[in-house]
Design a protein around this nucleic acid. Structure first.
Lengths: 147, 147
DNA sequence: TTGCGTGCAAAGGTTTTGCATGGCA
DNA sequence: TGCCATGCAAAACCTTTGCACGCAA
């Protein structure tokens, strides 16, 4: 590890597909996409990008820190979200996810209490919470009221 | 929905496969299994249970609240853990789970900050957190130090 | 020119579904 | 008896890999 700001190691080519993909994800920050969502978008545009390419490029962007990958549930496709390059020192910018067990709604959360809870876990229970992997399950407002 | 304490609606049959499955999971509480693990166990015993049946029974147990389901990574099989029937009305008895992504350690937590965080989610974000389904992923003390 | 990127096809693995049979109540 | 549960086979599904061709540097 410990390779700092230099990313000379492996920059990769700037292909047309990568540029289009990046521009699309960048245009909708904070929104979640599956690989299928992305492929559908470009197919609808009339200039499709191969599924394999999307998988490989998105994986590369995750490695580069431009895109976050979330595993919401087994059996469902992985979700990707453009966040831009985040510093390791500003984890507060990362948002957590709440998933409704009933209607399946996915809610983004970014508040101080969560960060505080994370700090509590670290300081009192020596557990480093991973916001990218952790999903809070429960009931959203509508589904709770409907019960 | 709104079927309260009566579970007369759908109790299901008590088949031999279900009893054996339940007895096995019950005998190793807190340990997690994949469907394949379970099938291998019974195949080794010489009296196999069909994969489809295991999937269906385990899913039913999750619905009944006897078993908890979570997944570590996309592309890997889902994990199941026997927890027994927990009451919805006794949150003090409910503990949260932290799972180390590296060594797989499962840590049980029960502290006031978590309850406070849960209240915050409910009052400020209108989200009712389900402690039985939610697993916090991250790094345990040892694995974090080893990084 | 060199070598990575692309995309089709096919494989890999997990989970679900169709359907005939068998067992519980 | 009626109906659910079982389990085999096959499908559906997400993701990865092999390989020939094309494009960036």
């Amino acid at each position: 590890m410990a390779d700092n700001s230099r990313m000379t190691a492996k920059t990769g080519y700037r292909t047309k597909q990568r540029e289009r993909l990046l521009a699309y994800l960048e245009s909708l920050p904070g929104r979640h996409f599956t690989v299928n969502d992305i492929c559908d978008h470009f197919r609808a545009e009339g200039d499709a990008i191969g599924t394999t390419t999307v998988y490989r490029q998105v994986e590369r962007m995750v490695d580069e820190g431009l895109v976050q990958k979330y595993h919401i549930d087994a059996g469902t496709p992985a979700c990707f979200e453009y966040t831009g390059k985040l510093s390791d020192e500003t984890p507060e910018e990362i948002c957590f996810h709440c998933k409704c067990e009933k209607c399946g709604a996915l809610i983004h959360l970014r508040c101080e209490e969560i960060a505080a809870f994370r700090d509590h876990l670290a300081s009192h229970h020596h557990f480093t919470l991973d916001p990218l992997r952790t999903v809070f399950y429960g009931l959203c407002e509508n589904c709770r009221d409907a019960e």
